[in-house]
Design a protein around this nucleic acid. Structure first.
Lengths: 145, 145
DNA sequence: CAAATTATTGCAAAGATTTGCAATAAGAAC
DNA sequence: GTTCTTATTGCAAATCTTTGCAATAATTTG
């Protein structure tokens, strides 16, 4: 999605285009990959001072519109722009993150829609579990048995 | 899972059974459905004073062991005991929560295991989206178009 | 373009959660 | 049962996030 389209969409629905929101959109569009609220703040042009609560509120707004996605469970929360739909496998033992293509979830989404009329918005999902290397290891790093 | 089994399992792996952990397990086993850290604190017997940071640490420990599951996205975090594996559909508009059976996810889990060697631990998952009633509504409650 | 309307911001305070560290106590070793 | 080892706790402080409210500024209206 292009930045201009986001601006247009927000305005059409009644949101106001303030200098803060424009500065934040600019900054976000210049960031690669994941980023935190603090990272956004650090990258804002020095002449644009935006309160941290405004950054939180704006990122949340963009999440509601599907422009951004929070990585579930990250603290501080990591956000990412929703360019290419994909999901993450997050190892609960070593923290390794691995990408998964979206199509794996197609069947599931169809089920949910047909059985519950529910439109799942899984554009960015973090799935907890164990990666190949951490299979038989407890949370403390002690091998079981 | 029975409380005694949890205790045994934790001990076997090297965790110590303190009075605080026993009191917390007791309390949790007496709670129904979802609960927060604060709720656990409120239900502790008055003679058992457990610091709030200890409660946080203990709930996290129980999550790592699959005894509890945090409901993704809830603030303050809601926890639930992992009795019957199921998942939640959470409407991002009205907040309605709906249960879904686990078997819907079986195919997905198999894919992840075969293609990535990843053992997903989806014993309790919150899936964001739109329920039937909130289909064409923006986050602010204004109908689109 | 000025006035009216109200979404948005900044600020400060509250709330939620995590973390470092010295004191305590569980379990192991003797 | 006493001593030793070290996981765990409580406390206080730090961090992360949310929220209420008066002041500000983006749109709408005239």
């Amino acid at each position: 999605m292009r930045k201009q389209d986001v601006i247009k969409q927000l305005q059409q629905v009644g949101y106001r285009m303030t200098s803060q929101r424009l500065a934040l959109l600019d900054t976000i569009w210049n960031l690669e990959g994941h980023f935190t609220v603090e990272a956004v703040r650090g990258r804002l042009p020095q002449d644009a001072s935006v309160d941290i609560s405004t950054i939180y509120r704006t990122l949340e707004l963009l999440c509601e519109f599907g422009v951004l996605y929070p990585l579930a469970g990250s603290v501080p929360t990591e956000y990412e722009r929703g360019e290419v739909p994909h999901h993450h496998l997050v190892c609960r033992n070593c923290g390794a993150v691995r990408m998964v293509d979206e199509y794996h979830f197609d069947d599931l989404l169809h089920h949910l829609l047909e059985e519950h009329g529910f439109v799942a918005e899984l554009t960015h999902f973090a799935i907890p579990g164990r990666c190949r290397e951490c299979q038989d290891i407890t949370p403390q790093g002690l091998a079981i048995e």
